[in-house]
């Protein structure tokens, strides 16, 4: 797969894995209204995944479509960031993951929406509106939980603590990013970091939380080096297509 196709694949994998994680809350959320909120976020992510993975297949030019890519690759060929494959944990852990990721997506798609490559720009423009809401929703929940009860604060701190080691990876750049930028589709993610930090810090302050302590970054998702969690997620998600090869659904 060439660099531009891989670039689309990474975007699709991020949304696919996050959508898969979020949809596990359906029927189990702390309140009915929250169930609907999380399902909306999940649906937006699955929609983004469908668009980006189909684009990746198209760019690859080997006849694979979004479903082939989603359901027939093994762990080492998945290119999502490690943050999105982290387990849901409790509601605070889920919100921590969403908070860090949605602010990244918001900044990313805002820029990609005006990329020269119309295919990437179109998907990003639609996604930008969706993720702006996700970022607000997640931030509001960080504030409620951070500045709620002692228990919710402790859980919010623990959730952020779990996810923090995966933040740096969001902004890493490599050859694929460079090629995508040269092709008029990519975004300089490293340049987004300062704004992301400012937004995160503002919400944490409002939530009466302190920024988690700096620590060694854990990365590798973009080149197929994942956590133990992804294999289990895929074996569940891909079961039917693997068990019934050749069948259509």
């Amino acid at each position: 797969m060439d660099a531009l196709a891989t670039y689309a694949l990474r975007l699709g994998d991020d949304s696919l894995i996050l959508g898969q994680r979020l949809s596990a809350w359906c029927g189990h959320a702390p309140a009915l209204e929250v169930d609907l909120s999380l399902a909306n976020v999940a649906l937006d992510q699955v929609g983004q995944a469908t668009h980006f993975l189909n684009l990746a297949g198209e760019l690859e030019g080997k006849g694979r479509d979004g479903d082939d890519l989603a359901f027939r690759r093994d762990v080492m060929d998945f290119t999502n960031c490690l943050l999105v494959e982290q387990p849901n944990g409790d509601f605070a852990q889920t919100i921590a993951r969403q908070f860090l990721f949605s602010h990244y997506q918001a900044l990313l798609f805002e820029q990609m929406a005006v990329a020269k490559d119309a295919r990437f720009a179109a998907i990003a423009a639609k996604a930008a509106k969706e993720v702006a809401y996700h970022a607000t929703l997640a931030s509001d929940w960080v504030i409620r939980l951070g500045d709620g009860t002692d228990e919710s604060k402790a859980r919010m701190v623990a959730g952020l603590d779990w996810m923090w080691r995966f933040a740096d990876e969001l902004f890493l750049m490599d050859d694929v990013d460079a090629a995508a930028i040269a092709a008029g589709a990519g975004v300089d993610k490293a340049a987004l970091r300062a704004t992301w930090d400012a937004r995160i810090d503002a919400v944490l302050a409002e939530a009466t939380l302190t920024r988690p302590a700096p620590r060694r970054a854990t990365a590798g998702g973009r080149i197929g080096r994942h956590s133990e969690h992804l294999g289990h997620l895929l074996s569940d998600m891909q079961f039917l297509q693997r068990a019934y090869p050749g069948a259509t659904w």
């Binding site: 995944a49 469908t50 569940d236 039917l240 659904w249």
Partner: peptide, 16 residues
């Protein structure tokens, strides 16, 4: 475990 992306989205929307 929905068998493709379209079925997954539809089922999620239905349950929602």
């Amino acid at each position: 475990r929905a068998p493709n992306l379209r079925r997954k989205a539809i089922l999620l929307a239905k349950v929602q």
